[in-house]
Design a binder for these strands. Structure first.
Length: 277
DNA sequence: AAGAAAGTCAACCGCAGGGAG
DNA sequence: CCTCCCTGCGGTTGACTTTCT
């Protein structure tokens, strides 16, 4: 019956982190590197559960985080990536160096949704609201927004033209199955027309080419492990073809460029025929 | 100036995936 | 192949801040 708690809740703090806790966490990770989040709190002398420590580090304390406002270019990139990937915030974050999935998720929900609605676009389907409403029975923008499933599940024919302009590159990519995230229950995708080959304009102005990340002034912790931070840093170099399930393609050498091999590149499970995001 | 409403975002929760044994 | 454990992800909550009346 139920899961066992991830940690001993009776002796853990919850809620906002104090400066002292932050310093303890930062100090410990600087000294020992990331990894083994479950045992980290005890080792660092923190009365927090490991998940909480990880989240705090990932979303707030990491030295490579970029604080501050999103630019319009960021907005557009997020919109495009969301149209492509759905609510795969971690993948989207991987294309925005210094941004976290949580930050982007919040930003989407608080800013970009409204921005799209103001444009008359359904933030889920990325289609004009009138068309989206006609197709799904929605009648208002707020309905359209509130009825979001986690994935836009938009076949190519339903995505905005901006994403499917004259194809500069044609990619036949695999979409994950609808059950991948367990939430794609609506959006009119599962019974839509099959669309195995999508002509994607992949020129999304990615700032991160398929090459090893350049040396930065912020040294990574001296941890030989494939730490989550390492993972995040590497995520910035994830090639979109991996996101799209097109791995080991002749045109992609990302994996070879990665020192951490399979742990670095996470990719969406290739879809079975007829399945969409 | 005070209270209400709306907006923002850090943090929590539960689940899924993957690796180890 | 199965089970357990750990990590990471996405959805949601709620405290705090800002704006409006």
């Amino acid at each position: 019956m139920g899961r066992s708690p991830c940690c001993e809740k009776a002796h853990t703090n919850k809620g906002a982190w104090t400066k002292e806790e932050d310093q303890r966490l930062i100090g410990y990770i600087k000294a020992h590197g990331e990894g083994c989040w479950r045992s980290l709190p005890k080792a660092a002398g923190l009365l927090r559960c490991g998940k909480s420590c990880r989240l705090r580090w990932m979303n707030y304390l990491r030295p490579d985080l970029k604080r501050g406002n999103f630019t319009d270019d960021d907005d557009e990139l997020i919109i495009k990536l969301h149209a492509l990937l759905g609510n795969k915030w971690s993948l989207i974050a991987g294309q925005l160096p210094g941004r976290t999935d949580n930050e982007i998720k919040n930003y989407w929900n608080t800013h970009i949704k409204r921005k799209l609605l103001n444009r008359g676009m359904d933030p889920h389907t990325h289609r004009p609201i009138s068309a989206a409403a006609a197709a799904s029975g929605l009648t208002t923008a707020s309905n359209a927004a509130s009825s979001f499933p986690s994935s836009p599940a938009a076949p190519a024919s339903r995505l905005p033209n901006a994403l499917y302009t004259a194809p500069t590159s044609t990619v036949s990519f695999a979409r994950p199955s609808p059950s991948d995230d367990g939430h794609s229950s609506s959006g009119g995708s599962t019974d839509g027309p099959r669309c195995p080959d999508l002509n994607l304009d992949l020129d999304l102005s990615m700032s991160l080419p398929c090459s090893p990340p350049p040396k930065t002034t912020t040294p990574a912790p001296a941890s030989p492990l494939h730490t989550p931070q390492h993972h995040h840093q590497q995520k910035q170099s994830i090639c979109l073809c991996y996101h799209l399930g097109v791995r080991n393609g002749a045109a992609c050498t990302c994996k070879a460029a990665s020192p951490a091999g399979h742990r670095v590149f996470r990719f969406l499970r290739p879809m079975e025929e007829g399945q969409y995001i």
